[in-house]
Design a protein around this nucleic acid. Structure first.
Lengths: 197, 197
DNA sequence: AAACTTACTTACTAGTTAGTAAGTTTAAAA
DNA sequence: TTTTAAACTTACTAACTAGTAAGTAAGTTT
């Protein structure tokens, strides 16, 4: 047996460890609920080390959103996603949201930042708008093809339905945080019931 | 013409002015984005005056949610709401969310607090859960009667549909904040299209 | 008139925040 | 071998945070 080595999972450097931890805290507790001190203590470095990699908290926040945007584009264009039939693409999207539940009931990026949106630095706002726009456009396309091929069923425009479905998923993760996983499963079940032809 | 005097709109006392301002800031910028200093400066009093009325920020936050819960119950039981037909009750609910758009594009209480939920004091968490549960139960009843009388149309259980619709409305106000009012109108239009028989 | 209450202000504490400047260690490059 | 650059630590600042304690002025009750 040959040792698997592509892609090699290198031990993440400090820069990445900061980003991972900050992203986790953002999605679990909100952007204003963690500080450079928290990050530093958890990572076993001094706060100034965080400033070395991300001079300001604005830079750190923007880096988090920018990375999520890169991930979205990469995921969307992956053959194992792009080549699926619309129904399977929709299920793949639901699986992503379902994953959040298993990770400390994280909300999605959009749901984590929307309420505090006006307190965010402008570059972060811009990245988040792009993130939401591209995801909505992708889903609209999936829905359009799905309806055209008779595997997905809905009334109205694909764009409107996409906006509605994504908004519902964002909210469903928030409800899961406030109560428990049950309402999330109920809401996703309702979405499937309505959409799958 | 007789001067209208019931209920008299007294100039609000400091206690109420604090609550009103804090609620506005909560819904416009998030719970962690305002301080006793902000409140005091805006109201022309000293921070200690706020502490006199609401000893801790936890107390203030809990008072905001508790008042919203009282308002919900009062609204729901108002004759001009309780006596409406289901379709009109649903439209009355949509009107409430629409009102938020006109007020600096405020999100709803639930949408403002869900992301930061774990950082909130326990009494605030409890009040918010009750708020969401009662609102969902109310809408489930409205939907059940609406479908039974043939004026509302949906598949699945009324409870599941109610959870889905409220979650969508919460998210729609958040999307409106991040982008503009357009996606909110699009999503609400989609809801009407699907639900109104 | 005396006692008490309400609604504050003044003055303070202790802790946290983001952020900076200067120095140190380590390893790679010239 | 010297130089250079990356990745930090140490030590600090200025501003802000919630919260407290003591005092005060005005009105209410007894």
């Amino acid at each position: 047996m040959i040792t698997q080595s592509l892609p090699t999972a290198l031990p993440p450097d400090t820069r990445t460890r900061i980003l991972d931890l900050a992203e986790g805290l953002l999605l679990e507790r909100g952007f204003n609920a963690f500080s450079y001190q928290h990050l530093a203590k958890e990572l076993g470095v001094k706060p100034a080390a965080i400033h070395y990699h991300y001079p300001s908290k604005d830079d750190l926040g923007t880096a988090i959103v920018a990375r999520q945007l890169r991930r979205l584009r990469k995921w969307r264009d992956l053959p194992r996603v792009a080549d699926l039939l619309p129904v399977a693409q929709f299920e793949a999207l639901l699986a992503v949201y379902d994953t959040h539940l298993g990770h400390e009931r994280r909300v999605c990026l959009f749901g984590a930042l929307a309420a505090d949106f006006r307190t965010l630095p402008a570059p972060m706002q811009a990245e988040l708008r792009t993130f939401n726009r591209e995801l909505t456009e992708w889903l609209a396309q999936v829905l359009a093809v799905g309806r055209a091929t008779g595997t997905l069923r809905f009334v109205g425009s694909p764009a409107a339905k996409a906006a509605q479905v994504l908004t519902t998923l964002t909210g469903a993760l928030q409800v899961a945080r406030v109560h428990d996983e049950t309402p999330f499963q109920v809401i996703v079940g309702q979405l499937r019931l309505e959409l799958l032809a």
